[in-house]
Design a protein around this nucleic acid. Structure first.
Lengths: 213, 213, 213, 213
DNA sequence: TATGAATGAGCGTTCATTCAT
DNA sequence: TATGAATGAACGCTCATTCAT
């Protein structure tokens, strides 16, 4: 007797649940940290009861893992896509990739995840390992690929590409993190300009010495 | 029954108690994070009972605050001392200061504090504010002073000194943090060499363009 | 779309459902006890969903009641059948009846029911009452009838037939129960031989004193 | 400033707590079974809060173990004491031991423990193993010792002593258990007379055939 | 100054039961 | 007849904090 429309509504709801719950969990983790966030709080934010959470996730920790996956994978995928594009101006792609990442991490909701990783490292080793293998490693590799391309084109000096990637990504990340931590969630704008300038400087640092002004 | 010698020992211990407790708290926070560390665990590590903790500290949160104070002030004081020394080689002092800080933070017990700050920012705003005003600010100012000295001596280019300080400190800190987070407490040595080299590069970046090789 | 063959299959399954569910419930109760067995577990074992359980049974408790009914009635019926057979060797029938019961209860699936009764007595008085009236009473009466027959034939001494039945059944039951409880489900064989010998001894105990070797 | 009297009061209370809690636990287990009894219920019966329970016991299961120990050890100790007494009438000691045990188990609070063992066997193997090794085994051995003494004196036939012990204890236990289970906690008196008579019969069964009337 | 028994609120998780479909 | 999402009340257990001693 149920129309297919009604059925679809219900189904859609059920299928959207995990996503809604993860968003609620993210909010709760941002507000209270992983330990202090309660399943009740997450449930309330998601508009379901506590029990319903366990229909979709086995535990709070697994929810964290799923959350990292959901939030971070698309970003790293875009960076990887950038890194395999054909180009004769890899410096531009590097800048694009860095601004993509820094722009995304300027959002407190996205930045919350590295922050959680930092806070929980040492206690949930596989969360950290997953992050290292699925996020940090690929990101370094992607930037490293672009550096190699620049080297092949004679635009960059012959340095270890992955080390160079680390040297470029690190300062950016730290600045963003510190801006979030020290200023709260407000005036990231002030850093944003600084960041774009820094990106230019860092990339220029890869050029052959003679090419520098 | 107590000889004055015994009494003195006892006094000394009693006066050392808050310190012993803070050390125990630090160990506990490192092992479990702020939320997951229990007062029982801290008491056990300090060799006292749970109740005794409250003789010296009002609450777990206050203990955290006292801990940050105790751990971080001496380090920043040494950096400030460096920054006001008379010298005609400020680059050497900058390097010394950076290696002082990075060396100290390589110790997981000291690194734990920035990690706690990062993890708890947003929940304890005044903890963060205190850290910004008493640690981050002074550190940037100190390095900035040395940069200015180098500019006055014509050894460095004319850039904003505090911005330069940020650009030097940031990459160091991030690399240390990531080493702690991703590798656990083990192979910081691998990064250590990298760090010293990076310090040289970063300082050289301050020199006038013509001076570069 | 459904052929009548398919329909019949479906009908048959639908009608077999309550039975399948009860079997699943028995397995679950054996594995975990009544309280610790979950409806989910029962449903999984029955190959249906949790909700479907409530189509056939009002509650977990009612399921227990139905289960006891189903499992225990056929066995007691066979004992009763034995007890009303015409015979001039009632001792043989008693032995047959006892071995029937002990043999059946050697199966953990059947023994589970007395175990459940024992465990739950005091909480579900009517379960116990039902068991007493429908199982224990009839069993004692049946054996008692055979004892009376033996007395009528002059083969047994003049003792209270039901008391004699109790004295015969009790040791058997206890030995089986203890074998299950103490050894787990493994070496009931060791007791089995012992049991047959005991049955002989117990029955012989009913014979007139002079008849004993 | 505390008088030693006050102190003693407080101490006495604290030292009596585990016992009070175990009694409360026993009541709760009797009323609801192990699974259905809640820690809250136990705490309420003991007059403390739930948390206080965990000052003395690690878990509900450990409480069960401690309870078995407390309730059952003294009884078995008394049986063992009986079994090593010098005597030239071991039959009398066997009867005394059996009446000791059956008399004790007539108390529903004591009988509750074997009942719990039966209910939980298969799920808490070490609870069961402990019971087998510390209770059932020693009890059989003790009765067996008395049987051997009777055999040495020529008063009993040459049968396996431990098997004889099993054959004597089993029927008693079963009758008690069934009385508890079927009649609830009320009219054990009716069985008590039956039991004493049975004990006589069972012991007489050990005598040489010729000695029987 | 120090103890340690005790509290009480709360946590992550479970589960018998319900009900729209 | 059957599903499976959802509930809501508990449950075993924990812990920061208090306080009589």
């Amino acid at each position: 007797m149920a129309t297919s429309g009604e059925r679809r509504t219900w189904r859609r709801r059920a299928q959207a649940r995990p996503d809604e719950i993860l968003s609620a969990a993210l909010d709760a983790f941002i507000a209270s940290g992983f330990d202090a966030a309660t399943m009740d709080d997450i449930a309330r934010r998601a508009g379901v009861t506590k029990g319903a959470l366990y229909l979709y996730f086995e535990s709070k920790e697994q929810m964290l893992r799923a959350l990292i996956d959901r939030e971070v994978r698309p970003l790293i995928a875009r960076v990887e896509a950038l890194s395999v594009m054909e180009t004769d101006d890899p410096a531009a792609l590097i800048k694009q990739a860095l601004l993509l990442v820094t722009g995304a991490l300027a959002d407190p909701r996205l930045f919350a995840l590295p922050r959680l990783i930092i806070a929980l490292s040492g206690r949930f080793p596989d969360v950290v390992n997953g992050y290292r293998d699925d996020v940090v490693g690929p990101a370094r590799a992607a930037i490293g690929r672009l550096v190699m391309r620049g080297q092949a084109l004679g635009q960059f000096r012959a340095v270890d590409p992955v080390a160079a990637a680390r040297a470029i990504i690190g300062p950016m990340m730290f600045e963003i993190m510190w801006a979030h931590v020290l200023h709260g969630e407000s005036d990231l704008g002030r850093s944003a300009g600084w960041i774009e300038a820094q990106v230019d400087v860092l990339i220029k640092g890869l050029e052959p010495r003679g090419a520098q002004s």
